[in-house]
């Protein structure tokens, strides 16, 4: 696909620990079109975060090729980073700064004008119910409040591609709905969302394409309708269970209760 905004060819990644090497991604090939919302799902340790970190330029030692926004992530990482937003899994922030100071900091690194950042930041903080705390230090914030600041910092510079790693972690129900709406509206405007999550119902509702990764290998790729065709499943959760080969949940639950009750 020549007009793809993300192209991955034979992407592999290993972690070395002393003499042992653990391969977490095995020759992944993907092509993502502008405006798509990709639900990137998989069990714990499947390689989701590693993929997102490679595509965001955080991990630079990998095998294979990765192109984002028309640029090779290995050859022109800065060009890629100019076009992306990244929302990490853990609320990693400089917590002794206030949200306003942090957003000013991030905005300036993306080359935005100070007064423009301030204007955008205050309006975004207000929409996320954080205006009252705009100048408070974030070390007193709840997990959800920090997550909201992270989401704003990932989109304030209007990126073409947004990589999200469990972005809804810790958010209240209203904030979750807002973020879902934001993602869908951004996609309509041609922005690409690469959304990695465990929360299946959100992925099912917002993604127009679902990629399932298991033990570093893509095991399914398509819309929910395509993936569930011919399978006896009524939700993405069931489909996930089916595709990852772990369908003995009720048996396991029974065994757990047996042990607890012993």
């Amino acid at each position: 696909m020549s007009n793809a905004i993300i192209t991955i060819n034979n992407l592999s990644k290993s972690y070395r620990n002393g003499k042992t090497e653990k391969k977490v991604l095995h020759n992944i090939n993907l092509s993502v079109l502008p405006g798509q919302i990709i639900g990137y799902i998989g069990p714990n340790g499947a390689g989701k975060s590693t993929t997102v970190k490679i595509l965001s330029g955080i991990i630079s030692d990998f095998e294979g090729e990765a192109m984002v926004a028309g640029y090779d992530i290995r050859k022109e990482p800065l060009k890629v980073k100019e076009h992306i937003g990244y929302i990490p899994e853990n609320a990693s922030l400089y917590e002794t700064l206030s949200p306003m100071e942090f957003l000013q900091f991030v905005g300036q690194l993306h080359g935005l004008d100070v007064s423009r950042i301030e204007d955008k930041a205050i309006r975004l903080l207000e929409l996320f119910d954080l205006k009252q705390s705009a100048h408070d230090r974030m070390n007193t914030f709840s997990k959800g409040m920090k997550q909201k600041v992270l989401i704003i910092s990932g989109i304030i510079h209007n990126p073409d591609v947004i990589f999200m790693d469990e972005p809804l972690d810790g958010l209240d129900a209203n904030a979750v709905i807002i973020v879902k709406e934001i993602l869908m509206q951004l996609a309509k405007e041609g922005k690409t969302i690469f959304y990695s999550s465990h929360i299946m119902d959100v992925v099912e509702k917002i993604s127009d394409r679902i990629i399932l990764i298991n033990q570093g290998i893509v095991v399914a790729d398509g819309s929910y309708e395509e993936l569930s065709q011919g399978k006896d499943t009524t939700s993405l959760e069931q489909l996930f269970t089916f595709l990852t080969g772990k369908s003995d949940h009720s048996q396991r639950a029974g065994e757990i209760i047996d042990i607890v009750e012993q």
Partner: peptide, 13 residues
């Protein structure tokens, strides 16, 4: 290591 998720995805040389 917070720099990894805050600074590394930004266009900084």
């Amino acid at each position: 290591t917070r720099d990894n998720s805050i600074l590394l995805p930004r266009p900084i040389t």
